[in-house]
Design a protein around this nucleic acid. Structure first.
Lengths: 214, 214
DNA sequence: TAAAAAATACCCTTTTCGCGGTATGGCGTT
DNA sequence: AACGCCATACCGCGAAAAGGGTATTTTTTA
């Protein structure tokens, strides 16, 4: 039987860490190839022309631009391209926006690899997929991943502890005082946390913490 | 019949706005008098000595100190004083801490006046009260106040709009770009939001936004 | 229509964050 | 013994947020 040609995927995300992780995951899939990586909104359209992807994996929080609007543009101008939004955040509002914008899917970044791949294939197959856990407030509260998230994201004990304190609204100085560390150490932990989660703002961190009930 | 002597309440909160609002509410209650207001943790113990309150209304997020620890100290050293924690935030962890610390009650600041007064009287009567809506994740999601919160807190349309954008993780500059305002205007709105909510950090604002599903 | 509220915008200062480094001691594994 | 991981700590820089004002225009409402 004829081997099916692999689908070409274009990754659009200014979080290099996540982008690279995703790429290495996809490299293990014979039917999926990464035809390009874009880190800036301005390069998206040119790269689509250049690589003719079957699918675009698009982060909602692209720096400077609105990921949803960008997705809408892609859907409007390149009807053959499937658009799957990826996000760190569980924001039903954004999900609704994505759905109304005619995008093909919306998925949380910390979905398991299996879920991620299944969703990619589902959307590639012409279906749409909008993470149902995003719309159900109860399933939110009872995060099925439970305490597992720290392991999955390689967060250390100290890092989780500091996330909790940041969530409580403490400043670096207050955190340092509370757990008897140098403020510089707290800053280092924070940098590592940001790196591991692929975020760069307190606001992102708070939302992450709340989603995981830290 | 003998008129009962009014109970003396001591307010401890560095959020002047809330403190004053609470004071004016209490001024209408003949059986409750405010015997003092404290805005700094260091003044708490001296003021208790000075005013011998029946009850202390204590904000969890006192600047510099931990409200729970302070409450524990009061409960430990002044057994006759009832301690009711007040908070902006719905954090089950803090509630548990408060309960374990032997405090007498824990209530959300945006409870209605009626609830607030009822709780104060309940706790004064020797009972404990821990806001049950805080422990129930489902009742959290379905905020009974609904869209009403903006009116209750006197938030304007523009302010709510900006809270939503801050929650999305946008910076002042990005917000200004998105809704076509000067960055200075955004800063002004933010200042007003902080003032109205009695908060002073993004982290607090995010938590507020999430609790009210903005 | 006059007063109040909301929205707009600018100034200045201080503090906190975010991001780029570097470095060292402890602890467990190979 | 060597390596990696974790936790600790410091420096410097630039961006952003916080906090303090003041001021003007538009809109709403009493």
């Amino acid at each position: 039987m004829l081997p099916e040609l692999p689908s070409r995927l274009l990754l659009i995300d200014d979080h290099r860490l996540f982008n690279d992780g995703l790429k290495s995951l996809l490299n293990e899939q014979p039917d999926l190839v990464v035809c390009g990586q874009v880190f800036q909104a301005s390069e998206v359209i040119p790269t689509i022309h250049l690589t003719s992807p079957h699918m675009v994996l698009l982060d909602v929080n692209l720096q400077g631009t609105n990921g949803i609007d960008l997705g809408k543009t892609i859907v409007g101008n390149y009807p053959g391209v499937r658009v799957l939004m990826l996000t760190m955040y569980n924001q039903p509002k954004l999900l609704d926006e994505a759905r109304r914008a005619g995008l093909h899917g919306y998925l949380l970044k910390d979905a398991s690899s299996i879920d991620l791949l299944r969703t990619i294939r589902t959307v590639l197959a012409g279906h749409t997929y909008f993470d149902s856990s995003l719309t159900d407030p109860v399933s939110l509260a009872n995060d099925p991943f439970g305490d597992d998230f720290a392991r999955r994201l390689n967060l250390t004990f100290r890092e989780v502890e500091i996330i909790a304190l940041i969530r409580e609204g403490l400043s670096n100085e207050q955190i340092a005082g509370r757990i008897h560390l140098s403020i510089e150490t707290v800053k280092t932990h924070r940098k590592n946390i940001h790196f591991k989660l692929g975020i760069n703002k307190v606001t992102d961190l708070i939302q992450f913490a709340i989603r995981h009930s830290i």
